[in-house]
Design a protein around this nucleic acid. Structure first.
Lengths: 226, 226
DNA sequence: CGCTTGATTTAGTCATGCCTAAATTTGCAG
DNA sequence: CTGCAAATTTAGGCATGACTAAATCAAGCG
């Protein structure tokens, strides 16, 4: 008796993790990578992947020892949860005045529990926004996600003006630091030449350049724009 | 090793049920009553009550075969969850335009997952309301609940003007019916004499009296007021 | 080609919370 | 006071989802 669908918090988290780790190329994701990302043991991952692949409508395509990829259903659910997350962040930030370094944790919990109805109401209330407060695109209801042409900050050429596109929301301290430096999505910056160990020298228009620590710089995407 | 605190969705639901069933007199609640209220088996209730009573800080006082009562900690948590629920209902209704017969279900799910922080933001945003959209009082953060002097509609004396105080939110159809009849909290009404089988003849100021079915009337509280 | 090493899977546990079936207790009628 | 019926508890299971320890697989090296 293969189980039907339904989706728990744990399942949602696996699907989101697979989507994030597989990248735009939809590469296979290893158990180890998932275990690290989810902070659980690899053995637990294997068990779950076997279940997710054995569902009546499987959420993943799984070949033992070769990693997993999302099935269409799995991708659909993952995008739905990400949509919930980013809409919630936008909502908490815009309507309830949450500071942008605090929205992530709350959204991470609630994303699993809001109904389709609430999702729609929030989106309507916000005017169907395209991005969360950190600059990440909000998937549409049909799963469409805006193209991402941005690159990591450390890969942007020196001397070419660019615009901060998004900032990782996984580390509140990093977000506070970015805010302090004025490096919020939409900000125009120049990369200055300087010693590289992953760290980056950034200049916000008209200000003194600042050095960003590698952990922080790694979470910043930058795109074209004056 | 007795387990510490933490509180799951299931635990919250038990505590809320005990609070609701024990009434203002804080009477003991039987396993059977809980089982019926929660739509689960009595045997499952027994197991859970034993756990809730064995916690490092017990949520209930439990004597086998004699029912349970909430401990101070249990009461505190129950009131917190009810506060979440009613604040959420108010919020969904006022800020997100949910119809009043739909707020209950959504709030029932979310009440377990909102942080203290979000609770506070919502309360602030609403101006610290005292009642949910159905007229039920919202417990204060310290657990204080407004006195309830109201009585069931069927117990209100005929001919004495009263004001609809609250309407049970457990049945969406009943709520729609009440809305249709204009019987929302705050409405002034008169009870007309008429055959009683639990049903009630109500007259909203200036209108023709309507007969309320017993299931519906049972969920309505009425108090003094023109 | 065989081996070592790291990645991965299997096997067996545990806690949560629900269920059924089988005691057992309680309380009320006679 | 007895005994039955209803309420309640015990015993034993199942599903979820995590963990540890012990296989096993795979991949690169010599």
């Amino acid at each position: 008796m293969t189980k039907s669908s339904a989706s728990t918090e744990a399942v949602d988290d696996y699907l989101k993790a697979i989507l994030e780790l597989s990248g735009p190329a939809d590469a296979r994701v290893t158990s180890n990578a998932l275990a690290a990302h989810l902070s659980i043991r690899a053995a637990s991952v294997t068990g779950m992947l076997q279940k997710l692949a054995a569902l009546e409508t499987p959420f993943v395509l799984y070949e033992k020892h070769r990693g997993v990829r999302l099935s269409p259903a799995g991708r659909r659910r993952a995008l739905e949860v990400i949509r919930h997350h980013r809409l919630l962040e936008r909502f908490l930030h815009d309507v309830l005045d949450y500071p942008w370094d605090e929205v992530h944790e709350e959204a991470e919990r609630l994303e699993h529990y809001i109904s389709e109805r609430l999702e729609d109401r929030i989106a309507a209330r916000l005017g169907h926004p395209g991005h969360d407060p950190h600059g990440h695109p909000i998937p549409a209801k049909n799963g469409a996600v805006a193209e991402r042409t941005e690159v990591e900050l450390s890969r942007w050429p020196c001397g070419v003006p660019g615009t901060i596109s998004s900032v990782s929301d996984r580390d509140p301290a990093a977000l506070r630091e970015m805010k302090r430096l004025g490096l919020v999505p939409g900000t125009s910056v120049l990369i200055e030449p300087g010693a590289r160990t992953g760290s980056v020298l950034v200049r916000v228009a008209g200000q003194t350049p600042t050095r960003l620590a590698p952990e922080i710089a790694a979470g910043v995407l930058i795109g074209e724009g004056s």
